[in-house]
Every structure is written in structure tokens, then in C-alpha cells.
Design a protein around this nucleic acid. Structure first.
Lengths: 188, 188
DNA sequence: TCTACGTATCGAGCATTGCTCAATAGAGAG
DNA sequence: CTCTCTATTGAGCAATGCTCGATACGTAGA
């Protein structure tokens, strides 16, 4: 008690990182809007007030947490994306390893407009990666939309696979690449 | 003021319907968890307490609202589903007319476990409709998963189309049926 | 080593919101 | 006309997002 009451003064940078880290961690166990400031503060061993010192509002805090989650995802799928096979393989590996935070990100998508916006940005970036891998330079609006929708398909199928082991990795891989190929050919 | 203070006693059935109706209405303008009991009560011209008299908890109220939204959707797509073309056509018409409540339903999916469950049930029912239309009696787990994921694709693409008029109705229709056909053939 | 300043940190307190419970009043049965 | 049943309410509690003034920790300069 005496020890926990002691003020452990830290640099703003570390504190922010710590708090966002805690947010990411908690995001894997419960939906975004169920994370209360009190929970985070207690976990970080600080007062509520301090959290509001770093993030003007709960929304801002959430937003940074979700953005961090998004960055993680994009970092994990990017770079390998030379071909569609590479991209899909990277995507599947990522989902396999980290489907929990990924689910968390998705589940958070609908909670609020500002979260949804981050979610859309993330998906747009993934769409760009896919389009690049497909060697499509100037896609029509329809092609972009179709590839974006394919991502929804990919997410759903990959998560189902990661959670319930539905089908083999090769089957899922084939379903994803095959569908994308078919979709893109149809869309233009 | 005097008029609004007057007690307008109603039958439980009507009250429940009224309250759920208000919930459905509000769901089109804001995400589920942003609807406060106070808002609903004020709109219905009743006290907060009465709402808790009919629904033991806010969750229960939400659940019934979302279930009602789900039922609407299923009623609108069911029946026409003789062939896949019929089903897709019905789906597109429905989205075209009512994409707002539909978006609302989707957006609500991640807010909480119990909402997500309703959402999954809804999608499972739609999957059954599609499988029936495809004349697939005993689908493997993989086929079911693939068709379920295809629904995510369909939802995403149809909503994009309804909101931003991306592509013609025929193009979207072709993209949906084509993808489903391709996916099912690949999955088995 | 001492002092003074900047700021990381906290505690008290306010408004909103989900929820409880005892009290009240409207409507139909007898 | 009265009595009973229950739809309805108001007051109040606990949790939670958020504000603000006070405090103490760490360091730069003497």
C-alpha cells in the first residue's frame, strides 16, 4: 500500500507508451467501449486524472490505441507483399499468430465513427497493398470496391480458420487467392 | 408541459412495441451503445424507470432491438430465395432500400458479445438460405465457412454500392453471384 | 549542496447514466 | 362506487467520464 502510493514519476513518452500498451492488452479481452478509464488507470498504477492529462478525452485515448493496433497489422503484412501469394501467406500467418488483437480491432470497428474511420483507413492501406501486388496501377472505383470487399471476405474466412481450424491452410490460401483473382477479372 | 406530464397508460404489448420501434429508429442515426436510456425514455415520453420495468437491463433492451432488426432483414430476403439470382437480387433490393438500418445492424455487431451472437445467428440464417438456393444439402464445414465469408463480401460490396453508387446494379449482381459460384466450386 | 522552478501526479468534486425500490394513480372487475 | 391490479413515477445509489486546483518529484543553476 505504501509502496503503491509512492509517486513513480516517469517521462511523458514512457507513460504514453505504457498506457497505450495497456490499452492494446486489454483490447484482446474485451470490446473497446468496455474498457473504463478506471481499469486502465488501476492497471497502470496511476490516478484517473493522469490519464486525462495525457489524453484530453477517453475518445482520444481509444483512438490512439486503435491506431497502434492498426499500425501493428499493417507492419506485419507489408513488405512481404511482392505477389498475391506472398501477401495472402503473410496475412494468414499474421492472423494465425495474432488473431486475438485482430479480432479486437474488427470488433471495435462499429463502436463509433472515429474508430470506424481508422478501420477504413487500415483497410484502404491493405487494399493498396493488394492492388500493388496485382500490378494494377489505376484501378477503377469498382475494382477498388471489389478488392476492399474481398478483404472482408478474407478477414472473415481467415478468422474462422484461425479460431476453429476450418480446412487446411492450403485450402484457405487457395480460396483467398482464387476468389481475388476471379473478382478482379470480373470487375474490369 | 402539463400534457406531457399526464400519465398515458398503455398496454404492455403496445409499450414494448413502441420502445423497440424507437430503438430501431435511433439505431439508424447513431451506434448502438450511444443510445442512452434517457434518450429512449424521453422520446417515448416516459420515465427511465418504466423502461427498466419492461426490460430488466439495458442489454436486454438492446438485444431485443437488434433481434428485431435482424428479423426484418431475414424476412426481407427470405422467400424469394429460389435461386441464387433471386436471393442476390432480393438482397440488393433490400440493401438499396434500407441500407441505413442494415449498416446500423452491422455497426452494432462488435459492441458486445451478446450483440455479436445475434449477428452471427443472422448471418447463419442467411448462409442457410444461400446453401438452400445452391442446392447443397449437407455442406462441409469449409463450404459453410466459405459461404459465410462470402456474405461478408456481399455485405461490404452492396453497402459500398448503395452508399456511393459504385458500379451498376448488374455489375454488382454479377460480382456477387460470380464470386459465390467460384468460391463454392473451389471449396469442395 | 542548496534552492527554485517546471511539470508529472494526485484528490476532491461535478454531471451523466445505468439501475433499484418504495410509493402513486389509472382502469377495469365486482 | 369501491377495490384491486399494475402501469407508471420520483427519489436516490454507484459507476464513470471529466475538470481543476493543489502537491511533490526531479533537475537546472547558484
Amino acid at each position: 500500500m505504501a509502496a503503491s502510493k509512492r509517486r513513480a514519476r516517469q517521462s511523458p513518452d514512457e507513460r504514453r507508451k505504457q498506457l497505450i500498451g495497456i490499452g492494446l492488452e486489454m483490447l484482446t479481452t474485451r470490446p473497446l467501449h468496455q474498457i473504463t478509464i478506471d481499469d486502465v488507470a488501476e492497471r497502470a498504477n496511476i490516478s484517473r486524472s493522469l490519464l486525462f492529462h495525457y489524453f484530453p478525452t477517453k475518445r482520444d485515448y481509444y483512438a490512439e490505441v486503435v491506431r497502434a493496433a492498426s499500425r501493428r497489422l499493417l507492419r506485419a503484412t507489408r513488405g512481404e507483399g511482392e505477389t498475391i501469394d506472398d501477401l495472402v501467406a503473410g496475412f494468414l500467418s499474421f492472423i494465425e499468430r495474432r488473431h486475438e488483437p485482430y479480432i479486437a480491432l474488427f470488433r471495435s470497428a462499429g463502436t463509433d465513427d472515429w474508430v470506424h474511420e481508422i478501420f477504413r483507413d487500415t483497410r484502404a492501406a491493405l487494399t493498396d497493398q493488394a492492388l500493388t501486388a496485382l500490378d494494377i496501377d489505376e484501378p477503377s472505383e469498382l475494382v477498388r470496391a471489389a478488392v476492399g470487399a474481398w478483404l472482408a471476405y478474407a478477414e472473415e474466412l481467415a478468422l474462422e480458420w484461425a479460431q476453429h481450424h476450418t480446412g487446411s491452410r492450403e485450402q484457405i490460401h487457395a480460396l483467398l487467392t482464387g476468389a481475388l483473382d476471379h473478382i478482379v477479372r470480373t470487375a474490369r
